[in-house]
Every structure is written in C-alpha cells, then in structure tokens.
C-alpha cells in the first residue's frame, strides 16, 4: 500500500519562495525522504509514525515523504539497494543517506539529518 507523495519537484518560483522563507526560519533546506517498509509490520508502523512525527515537528512545509512497500515493488528494493526494512533514504539535501531501523533513535536521527544544527552542542 504505497502512499503517494504530496507533490513532485517544486516549481522554481515556489522553491525560491520556499528558500527565502526558509532562510528566515531555523531550518532552510528542503528534505526529500523515501521510506521503504516491508508490509505493515510493527517496525514499519513505528517507522512511519516516527518519521511523520519528525517531519511534522521539524520540517513542516519543507519535506516530501514517500512510503514504499517493497513487498509490492520488489524491483525497487534491488534498484535502490534496500537490504533492511524499514529503511529511510534521505535523498535531499545531498549527500544521500540511509537510515536503517524503526527510526526510534530520534535524537541521533535529528543530528544525522542535520535538522538540529550542531549535534555536538545540543546537549539536551
């Protein structure tokens, strides 16, 4: 049951607007996520909940999240080099990163995603 992404690449004007807007705020980059899950397992649901929470909390309005069930799109697993489930792929901003697991290590994840600007200074 793949959830479809809200919108494709933003139009140049939109992105410029978004960019300007983002500069005023704490974060200013647009995030594109793909979450690969294997059916509706406990891990899958945890991962979906966790990423949605993170996005809504920290990246409101500047993220795309696509959820893909590799049971239904097995070829994608090969194309995208998916080994583990769930796997979150941060495609943008570059560099692309892979996060394996149910995304419950929130603090670590925020730091790795650079959503919290400097992970070493943010003690709490």
């Amino acid at each position: 049951m793949p959830n479809h992404n809200n919108s494709d690449k933003p139009k140049p004007q939109d992105s410029k607007l978004a960019f300007d807007k983002a500069l005023l705020e704490l974060g200013h980059e647009h995030y594109t996520f793909k979450l690969y899950i294997a059916g509706m397992s406990r891990n899958s649901q945890q991962a979906i909940n966790n990423i949605q929470l993170i996005c809504e909390t920290h990246l409101q309005g500047r993220y795309n999240l696509e959820i893909i069930d590799i049971y239904q799109q097995a070829t994608i697993a090969k194309q995208k080099q998916i080994i583990a489930a769930p796997t979150l792929v941060k495609e943008l901003p570059l560099p692309a990163r892979k996060f394996i697991g149910d995304l419950s290590h929130t603090k670590q994840l925020l730091a790795e995603l650079k959503i919290i600007s400097n992970p070493f200074q943010s003690k709490e």
């Binding site: 891990n43 945890q46 697993a77 080994i83 583990a84 990163r97 996060f99 290590h105």
Partner: peptide, 15 residues
C-alpha cells in the same frame, strides 16, 4: 548507513 532502531533484513529476502 545509520542504524536508528529496530529492523530486519526483509529487504534482502524480498530481493
């Protein structure tokens, strides 16, 4: 690759 919680190797099995 970063490990951020529980997972399994279902991806491999599916492939």
């Amino acid at each position: 690759i970063e490990i951020t919680g529980d997972y399994d190797l279902e991806g491999l099995l599916i492939r």
